[in-house]
Simulated assay, not measured.
Amino acid sequence: MNRSYETVPRRKVSDVSVTLGTEHFTKANALVREALGKAATVEIREAFAQRYLGCGIQAGKTLLIHGVPGNDMACYMDGGEIEVFGNAQDQIGNTMNDGLVVVHGRCGDAAGYGMRGGKIFVRDGCGWRVGIHMKQFEDKRPAIVIGGDAGSFLGEYMAGGVIVLLGKPGRYLATGMHGGVIYLRHELALEEVPKGLVQGAVDDADKAIVRSLLIEYNAHFSDDLGYGVDTSGEGFFRLRPASSRPYASMYAN
């Protein structure tokens, strides 16, 4: 346990609540959209795997979800905030453009699939292919922080953005990665470093990135965990492509 850590202030309370229970996902999403039309912050109770919750919500709107949201929560999200008080299923933040997703538990496969902006914080571990096809453009640099272990293919085909992993990676880490950076707390053995990638110690610029994200991680989860993670950025290892154009030989000049 590390007691010298930093946090930033916690967030919002709900204005309106919606109980989903066993409603079909189509009806459930209609109820949520109706509530968001009336209030900035909506609390969802008894989420039972309904898909697409928070799809496309924009800045100024917040969902506080109790239960287990279904696949594609926060897909195409464009600036809103979603906080899940429990686990989340697959493909959260699919093609997310901006905003914030916080999961007080673990998430399934392919979180952040094609993610273009915003941040996803997961308190515990994650399934396979998290961060697949993440990308960035100019000042849009998405970030995913995973507090536990990751399943196989973390950062697969990653083209941009940042992943911070506090636990251990699974097999086939960063397969096809050609952009962005993954920060690992556990150093890979030389034979474990994927072909075309390089592993190295973090420098001051890397530490600043990791530090900022871990301060946010603590703000969301230190109360749950009963402690905060070290926010210094020390002890991490950077994994990135060896070349900015790793597939250049496959195309005509």
Score class of each variant (00 low, 15 high):
123 R>V: 01
123 R>T: 01
123 R>G: 03
123 R>N: 04
123 R>K: 14
123 R>F: 04
124 D>K: 10
124 D>S: 05
125 G>V: 14
125 G>L: 03
126 C>M: 10
126 C>T: 12
126 C>D: 03
127 G>Y: 02
127 G>F: 07
127 G>D: 10
128 W>N: 08
129 R>Q: 11
129 R>W: 03
129 R>K: 11
129 R>A: 03
130 V>S: 05
130 V>Q: 04
131 G>V: 13
131 G>E: 05
131 G>N: 00
131 G>P: 10
131 G>Y: 02
131 G>W: 09
132 I>W: 07
132 I>H: 02
132 I>N: 08
132 I>F: 07
132 I>P: 00
133 H>Q: 05
133 H>E: 09
133 H>M: 09
133 H>N: 15
134 M>E: 13
134 M>T: 12
134 M>S: 07
134 M>N: 05
134 M>A: 11
134 M>V: 14
135 K>E: 12
135 K>C: 12
135 K>F: 05
135 K>D: 06
135 K>H: 04
136 Q>A: 14
136 Q>K: 09
136 Q>P: 09
136 Q>I: 02
136 Q>Y: 11
136 Q>F: 14
137 F>L: 10
137 F>T: 07
137 F>D: 04
138 E>T: 12
138 E>C: 15
138 E>F: 07
138 E>I: 04
138 E>R: 08
139 D>M: 06
139 D>R: 13
140 K>S: 12
140 K>H: 08
140 K>D: 15
140 K>A: 07
141 R>Y: 00
141 R>M: 14
141 R>Q: 10
141 R>A: 06
141 R>S: 10
142 P>V: 04
142 P>W: 02
142 P>R: 08
142 P>E: 06
143 A>E: 15
144 I>P: 15
144 I>L: 15
144 I>Y: 00
144 I>G: 00
144 I>T: 03
145 V>W: 03
145 V>K: 01
145 V>Y: 01
146 I>A: 02
146 I>C: 11
146 I>K: 00
147 G>E: 15
147 G>S: 00
147 G>P: 02
148 G>F: 08
148 G>I: 06
148 G>Y: 11
148 G>P: 08
149 D>P: 04
149 D>A: 12
150 A>N: 06
150 A>C: 07
150 A>T: 10
150 A>F: 03
151 G>M: 13
151 G>P: 13
151 G>I: 09
152 S>H: 11
152 S>G: 15
153 F>N: 08
153 F>H: 15
154 L>Q: 05
154 L>V: 14
154 L>F: 04
155 G>I: 15
155 G>M: 15
156 E>P: 01
156 E>L: 04
156 E>W: 05
156 E>K: 01
156 E>T: 12
157 Y>R: 03
157 Y>W: 15
157 Y>D: 13
157 Y>H: 04
157 Y>V: 05
158 M>S: 06
158 M>P: 03
158 M>Y: 13
158 M>G: 12
159 A>W: 01
160 G>V: 01
160 G>P: 13
160 G>K: 11
160 G>H: 08
160 G>D: 15
162 V>T: 14
163 I>H: 00
163 I>P: 02
163 I>W: 05
163 I>C: 05
163 I>V: 10
